[in-house]
Amino acid sequence: MARDAFEYPDVAGYPDGSGFLDQGTALSPEDGGSLEYTTPSAEAETEFVVRDDVAAFEFQALIGRRVVGLIRYAGRDSGPLVLRSTFVEPVQRGRGIATALIAHVLDDLRDRGQRVAVECGQIRGFIDAHPEYRDLVVPASPPRD
């Protein structure tokens, strides 16, 4: 499984159980993006906006102008959208932001008829716990030699 260069080994295995954690050192909110949601999730303690920053290949959760969480993805034009990783700022964790962000993104992708391939263990765990999203996931490809 390919991993983004921004991830580093974490002995605690946060967030996806496979030992990777995004450092989040290069986060700086910029104007742009094509999708915005302003409806907060009942799962989150904090109200935030979700936008799709197409240029950065990220769905971003913003509180004000600050990016507090994101889902990185690959692909867009053909085939499934590959959901690569999920990140929430350490000070914002435990408030339901990742859960709400994942739900928002999957709901939007369903509305657009977009299928997904999931590399992120956190998103995979969410889908396992919420079987209503399983129809969005394409079967895994066999490993390459």
Rank of each mutant, 00 (worst) to 15 (best):
M1R: 01
M1I: 03
A2V: 03
A2Y: 05
R3H: 07
R3F: 04
A5E: 08
F6I: 06
E7Y: 11
E7D: 10
P9C: 01
P9I: 02
D10H: 03
D10P: 00
D10G: 00
D10N: 06
A12G: 09
Y14T: 09
P15G: 08
G17P: 02
G19K: 03
F20E: 04
L21H: 10
D22V: 11
L27N: 03
S28R: 12
P29C: 07
D31I: 03
G32L: 02
G32V: 01
G33P: 03
G33T: 06
G33A: 07
E36N: 02
Y37Q: 02
Y37D: 02
Y37T: 12
P40Y: 10
P40I: 03
T46E: 14
E47A: 15
F48Q: 05
D53P: 03
D53F: 14
V54P: 00
A55E: 14
F57G: 05
E58A: 10
E58K: 11
E58N: 14
E58I: 12
F59S: 04
F59D: 01
Q60C: 08
A61T: 06
A61L: 05
I63S: 10
G64I: 04
G64F: 11
R65P: 04
R65T: 13
R65Y: 02
R66E: 13
V67R: 01
V67P: 00
R72L: 09
R72A: 15
Y73R: 04
A74S: 14
D77F: 08
D77A: 13
S78D: 15
G79P: 11
P80S: 09
V82D: 11
V82H: 08
R84M: 14
R84P: 00
T86V: 15
P90N: 06
Q92R: 09
R93S: 06
G94M: 12
G94A: 06
R95C: 07
R95Q: 13
R95E: 12
I97M: 05
A98R: 00
T99V: 08
L101R: 02
I102M: 12
I102H: 11
A103P: 03
H104I: 00
H104A: 07
V105S: 05
L106E: 06
D107L: 00
D111F: 08
G113Q: 12
G113C: 11
G113I: 15
Q114L: 12
Q114E: 15
R115K: 15
R115C: 13
R115L: 15
V116K: 08
V116Q: 08
A117L: 14
V118P: 01
V118S: 05
C120A: 14
Q122V: 12
Q122G: 02
Q122W: 13
I123Y: 08
R124P: 09
R124K: 15
G125V: 10
F126N: 00
I127R: 04
I127T: 10
I127P: 05
I127W: 15
I127Y: 14
P131N: 10
E132G: 11
E132R: 14
V138M: 12
V138Q: 11
P139E: 13
P139M: 08
P139L: 10
P139G: 11
S141N: 05
S141D: 10
S141F: 07
R144T: 10
R144Q: 09
R144L: 10
R144K: 05
D145W: 05
